[in-house]
């Protein structure tokens, strides 16, 4: 072997893995942030419901907060809203 790699530094950029590219509530791109935030990314995270629909955390929280407890449904598919358990 003429050459062997000792050490490598890779660079990766992460983005949200949300198929639909805009939030169903605020219509802003998932790559961007909700209307209340300035900087996208960790500061304005996405969440998924059990129905697999993603939203900005801030957007869905506001939505859920505005509903009475029996009517907390996903705005996209009207199923009962449950945060999908992810790490």
């Amino acid at each position: 072997m003429k050459l062997t790699i000792n050490k490598v530094r890779l660079v990766a950029a992460w983005t949200w893995d949300a198929g639909d590219d805009a939030c169903g509530i605020c219509r802003n791109a998932f790559d961007g942030c909700c209307p209340d935030c300035n900087i996208p990314g960790d500061a304005c995270p996405l969440v998924w419901g059990n129905c697999k629909h993603p939203f900005h955390l801030h957007c869905i929280s506001k939505w859920i907060g505005a509903q009475s407890s029996e009517q907390q449904k996903c705005p996209m598919c009207r199923q009962d809203w449950k945060f999908e358990a992810r790490k």
Binding site: L3, N6, R9, A12, W14, W16, P54, K87
Partner: peptide, 19 residues
């Protein structure tokens, strides 16, 4: 979870042992 990675090879770097 819920993220995807885009690799930026332009910015990668290595240390290579060359015989």
């Amino acid at each position: 979870s819920g993220r995807k990675l885009a690799w930026q090879y332009v910015n990668g770097s290595c240390r290579v042992k060359a015989n």
